[in-house]
Amino acid sequence: MATIQFDSAEERRSASLLGMWLFLATEVLFFGPLFFGYLRGRLAVHEAFVSGSHHIHFWLGTANTALLLTSSLTMALAVERAKLGRGVRLMLSLTAALGTAFLCIKAYEYASELGEAASARGGEAMFYFLYFAMTGVHALHLAIGIGLVAWLWLTARRYGERYSMPVEVTGLYWHFVDIVWVFLYPMFYLLERYNA
């Protein structure tokens, strides 16, 4: 492996972690315009956003929130187990399974909302546009995360007391994707749900 630039495994680890933190900073800004668009839309066509949040599947979104938060737990456990060098595959499998379940439910949601979204007009069209764009970009990130976890599963033999950096780095990414959902869920499913 071409790692001549590092003097030690610890230096390599800290560089990789820093690299991922910086990448996550990029990611925050990447989502930024979407959040601004949401804010602008919500202020401009408030009623449409209120009624829109009544039309999407509250319980499915809630179930997905539970799945994703649990997957962050299993991901955190995967990192711990990778450092111990045993049982990492189980936790990675659980993480990937929870992530995949999220995507399946999301796909079902999309399929059942598509018709209504296509016929929406004015502010409602904007609500659905933001809903699909924001949760879609999130789902894309999650799919990439599942791919990374699958790759970790395949290379699980490598990780142990001395070397667990890729699991840690992927873990950071996974938690970030989770946190984005923690914002998206209330924005689309919860706000004003009990008004109007």
């Binding site: 990029t26 990611e27 800004l29 990447f30 989502f31 930024g32 315009p33 979407l34 668009g37 602008r40 839309g41 401009a44 066509v45 449409a48 004015g122 502010g123 069209a125 904007m126 546009f129 933001l130 764009a133």
Partner: peptide, 27 residues
């Protein structure tokens, strides 16, 4: 990354006909 997402939104708006930069929809 802000540019990347902003341009993506332009492309989406061009393709889908709806988007956050269209004042008729509250953009």
């Amino acid at each position: 990354p802000v540019l990347a997402m902003t341009l993506t939104l332009i492309a989406l708006e061009r393709l889908a006909g709806i988007g956050i930069f269209n004042p008729a929809l509250g953009g």
